[in-house]
Simulated scan of single mutants.
Amino acid sequence: MRHWIGRKVAVYRATGIREPLKGTLVEWDEEAECVRIGPKRIKVSFDNIAMIRPLPEESLPLKKARSEVHKVGYVMKKAIQFENAIYFKSQVMIWRRAKIVALSTTILRHDEDQVELADGRVLRKDKHMFVVRSRRGIR
């Protein structure tokens, strides 16, 4: 059953809870007889699994949490972060789900719902993840 690792899944539980756990199957541990569902690594024992089904990519919502560290910088969530990226002409990486929309671009302007890029494209904030590239370690 290791073919489920890394895939977006819905885990239906045998305890009668109707809502399935949705996320990425991070780990299949046969010794501990459990699976871990990401992003919070929730542990579900094999005894508590009734069924596992794959999910399409669009079924999981984008994170609405505060800004978090990304491996190339910081995820922008607040208006001041977008304004600083515009002011300092920071390089921004843009993702839509698991696909990169723009590897390195700058933002010209933004409003509450959308962002205009240097190449003229207009992208919605709720459909994309904007990662401002940091200059950590550079003096």
Rank of each mutant, 00 (worst) to 15 (best):
58 E>A: 06
14 A>G: 11
20 P>Y: 08
95 W>Y: 04
49 I>V: 12
131 V>M: 01
69 V>F: 15
87 Y>Q: 13
130 F>E: 11
5 I>L: 04
58 E>M: 02
124 R>S: 13
32 A>T: 11
22 K>A: 03
1 M>G: 14
108 L>Y: 01
51 M>K: 12
138 I>A: 11
1 M>T: 14
33 E>Q: 11
94 I>T: 05
66 R>A: 15
97 R>H: 03
121 R>S: 02
95 W>M: 07
83 E>T: 13
124 R>N: 13
80 I>W: 14
38 G>P: 05
37 I>R: 10
24 T>V: 13
113 D>Y: 03
82 F>D: 04
85 A>F: 01
139 R>T: 12
10 A>Y: 07
94 I>Y: 02
95 W>G: 00
96 R>S: 03
61 P>T: 09
16 G>I: 04
68 E>P: 14
101 V>Q: 01
63 K>R: 12
45 S>P: 06
56 P>F: 07
28 W>L: 11
108 L>N: 09
15 T>M: 09
77 K>E: 11
53 R>L: 10
86 I>E: 12
2 R>D: 14
70 H>M: 14
122 V>R: 03
98 A>M: 01
92 V>C: 00
42 I>E: 14
119 D>A: 02
122 V>M: 04
51 M>V: 08
21 L>R: 11
112 E>I: 10
68 E>K: 15
6 G>I: 06
23 G>F: 02
112 E>W: 03
23 G>E: 07
135 R>Y: 11
